[in-house]
Amino acid sequence: MKKVIISVAALVFLAGSFLALSYFNKSDIEGTITITVIDEIGDTVSTKELDFTSEDTLFDLLDQNFEVGCANSSYQLSSECEKILFTSRVLMKIDDVETDWINNYIAIYENNEYSLLGIDNIILNDGDVFVFEYKTVGGDN
């Protein structure tokens, strides 16, 4: 009986935590964001202004407007960017900007702030500016 109670409490805790996290993680109903992609030498490869609705995610907008590649389960570059249960996809390629995750990666800046959230966990607010920048591991932000 004790084990059942603990198990139910754990599952309630799990479900409650994710409900709370999703509650605080809601995008604006609609708006416009700007996406900029910067390559390994610091040049701006592309800048686009994109409209979004509440149905869109940052990844959806990227996927529709750029050629993107994601990490597979072994952190190898894959063109299949399927949604991952519970967590965020890892971006490894946007157009010609390609990374290997071990030595370099794509950093996301949201309104000039280094984002510590993955692409699927970032919420969209009207007027947000996102910069996707090639970074060397251990380099300066």
Binding site: A10, L11, F13, L14, S17, F18, L21, F86, T87, Y105, A107, Y114, L116, L117, G118, N121, V137, G138, G139, D140, N141
Partner: peptide
Amino acid sequence: LGINELWPYLVADIPFEIIMAT
């Protein structure tokens, strides 16, 4: 990654920790 702020990383990691703990 050259991150200087602890708090945002701690918060971002919470879902993964909850899954592993449960």
